[in-house]
Amino acid sequence: MVDAIQFAFDILSFISVMVLVVLGLGIIASMMGIFNFAHGEFVLLGGFTVFMVADAGHNAWWGIALAPIVVGLLGLVVERAFVRRFYAAPASAILGTYAIGLVIRETVRTFLGGHYESVPEPWPDFVTIGAISFSAWRSFIIAVTIVVIGGSWIFLTKTSTGLKIRGSLENPMLARVCGISTARVYALTFAFGSALAGLAGALIVPLYQLSADMGLRFLVQSFLSVMVGGVGTFEGPVLGAITVGALVAGLPWLAPPVLADPVALLIALLIVKVRRQGLISRGRK
């Protein structure tokens, strides 16, 4: 029983990390049809913001609050300056965003001097209940993930802005005819996805070291999640992230860790093979 609870908590906390990281990527991919290869670097910038704020001697909470704003604004600038030129050619968008990511990654590396930095979390300790220990920060991440999923879902499905976003995706021409500025909607969506990436980075950086390659670590798993879940809906990438997260965290219990990674990839690819459109395939046809 004790083991089962501990196991469930460990898996859930890693799934939360995966979902947080994937969410921004999934929203941009689903709602705009753009695969943002700079996503990992947006996550990195979120973490970097917290590091800078904490390094300047301020409370880390300020950094966590600031990260989505900073990265969201950067996303806005990036969309207006570069990404909007790629809507007609999604393949070029992959290269273009990769280049942007590269610039960000190397700039951060310059600032860090190649070092690995530890970033403190505001709630450092763990809670022990009986024989089980829960990390306070991981518990907080699980809670935030649930709130963020709920909030994003409501934003995209229940608000008029969300309707405009989905409308611009389904039929951009008709949306423009209806008086929706699709350019503005796309910019907003990209900024929103970027802000989520910034938030993810800010929340997960205390769990990992801040280094320039922090975003790269999650890149493959994130894209796999989006593929497994399917592009075109909000739920798809979330479900994909849950699947991939559970595989990555769960398999090392069953197989040697060196094998667990490839096996997780294999299973994910099998899912993609069986369900070409991903787990959830409604939405964009």
Binding site: D10, P252, W253, V258
Partner: peptide, 20 residues
């Protein structure tokens, strides 16, 4: 004695073995 990919980010299975 166990080996991991260099950038593995999740170690709960290992921690479980250490505990058990």
């Amino acid at each position: 004695e166990e080996y991991y990919p260099l950038d593995q980010s999740e170690y709960s299975a290992t921690i479980g073995k250490i505990r058990d």
